[in-house]
Amino acid sequence: METLLDILSWLLLTIGGIFVFIGGLGALRMPDLYTRMHAASVTDSIAPILIFVGIMLQSGLSLASVKLAAILLFLLLTGPTASNALASAALLSGYKADGPAASEEDAGK
């Protein structure tokens, strides 16, 4: 049982790590802001879930697990909220949302 849990948690952690990396890569490779945000949301949603669940399996049923769950909940609440806030800010200031041909100009004048 112990080993099973171990293997499971290592598995989760590794996959989480891979997803984190992919997200980062995506944020770098994608052509414009909104598509980059899609990539970033990989690291914001699935990766924390996997990693935190992985650690929780390691630490067992303890206060640390509760804390981890709380942080996870917090991240899952705030992550998309922040993305949404960012996206609407971009939209507000006229950052084009249609297609990959969005302007590459520096919007921060």
Binding site: Y34, T35, M37, H38, A39, S41, V42, D44, S45, I46, L76, L77, G79, P80, T81, S83, N84, A87, S88, A90, L91, A97
Partner: peptide, 26 residues
């Protein structure tokens, strides 16, 4: 709903106005 959309990679809610959510999809 809006946050679930954002949370799911590949879709991103960018604006909410009177119950209508503007969604950007990859």
């Amino acid at each position: 709903l809006g946050n679930s959309i954002t949370l799911t990679p590949g879709t991103l809610s960018i604006d909410v106005h009177e119950g209508v959510i503007k969604v950007h999809a990859l």
